[in-house]
Design a protein around this nucleic acid. Structure first.
Lengths: 158, 158
DNA sequence: AGATAATCATTACATCTCGGAACGATTGTC
DNA sequence: GACAATCGTTCCGAGATGTAATGATTATCT
């Protein structure tokens, strides 16, 4: 039978495929990093701290798409595990400057390996050149849509 | 090229872009159909009922990725708004056969127009040919990943 | 300088969502 | 004809979520 419900475009369009594949990729990634005892938002924070250390909690919370109140216990756990640390900001003593610890940097290295394996797995259907083309197109779409590179809210805490 | 300090591949890979763009597309779609007083799962159900009417709640709930217990109030509201109806299944009197009402079919037509506008918006950065290539690649990736066409659990009920 | 408003991190709280377990009705199995 | 399985449904606790209030610090304005 023709299992193509809804209409030719509704569920076969790029927008739907992006949502479907994005959800799938995110869930798979969450499963993978669960082996490192990390959730996607936690992994996101580690990456952000490696990229630009010393930012305030408010900024980081904004980028992660969570309210500051929720960021506090979120950072507490990572600090308790010795992966990040809150330093005092000499210029503005009411804000904390978040940094990666050595242990956190070590875990981030493992995280990157998991990320590469994840990338290979998701794109297993594509040749090397096709993979390049896909990334190039997705980058253009993301830029035109005004998305900040390397940041995406909508993480699930699972 | 641009080697961002955060990591070369981690945030520029296809998997991350898919998750980022997928979340973005899903959120934008949710905003659009909010004008029709619909959430993404509700829109999904309407499409599924148009594609294959008369299915049981259990099946539909599985496809939507929600437990049957949550499906009940979910279907209740749509039935209360006169968009779907529960008919008795003569073969199996413990299951309900869900169908679209005329009103529901009318709303689905509007929904399809919104979907087309959404598709155009998301892919504004691409030419006609590029759009075709992108869809073709995404379809292959989705198929290789074992995803069912036209069905995706996952995103929030927003 | 001094008063006032704004910002940061944090806590408290009230609300909502989520999925599992239990239940009656019905159907399949042996 | 007894027993297990399935469907829809209700019930309930655990957990997540965002808003409002708080205390400390900083910026603004006259």
């Amino acid at each position: 039978m023709d299992r193509r419900p809804g209409g030719p475009q509704a569920q076969g369009g790029a927008a739907f495929l992006l949502a479907q594949l994005g959800s799938h990729a995110a869930r798979l990634f969450a499963d993978r990093i669960a082996g490192l005892d990390l959730t996607p938002p936690q992994a996101g924070l580690l990456r952000m701290l490696a990229a630009s250390p010393g930012r305030s909690q408010r900024e980081l919370a904004d980028d992660l798409g969570m309210p500051p109140s929720r960021f506090v216990p979120f950072a507490d756990e990572l600090e308790g595990r010795g992966l990040i640390e809150r330093r005092k900001n000499p210029n503005d003593r009411r804000s904390h400057a978040l940094h990666l610890t050595e242990k956190g940097a070590g875990l981030l290295a493992e995280l990157r390996e998991v990320g590469m394996a994840h990338e290979r797995d998701i794109c297993a259907a594509l040749s090397f050149d096709e993979h390049r083309e896909l990334v190039a197109m997705l980058r253009r779409v993301a830029e035109q849509q005004g998305l900040t590179p390397g940041v995406h809210p909508g993480y699930r805490s699972g």
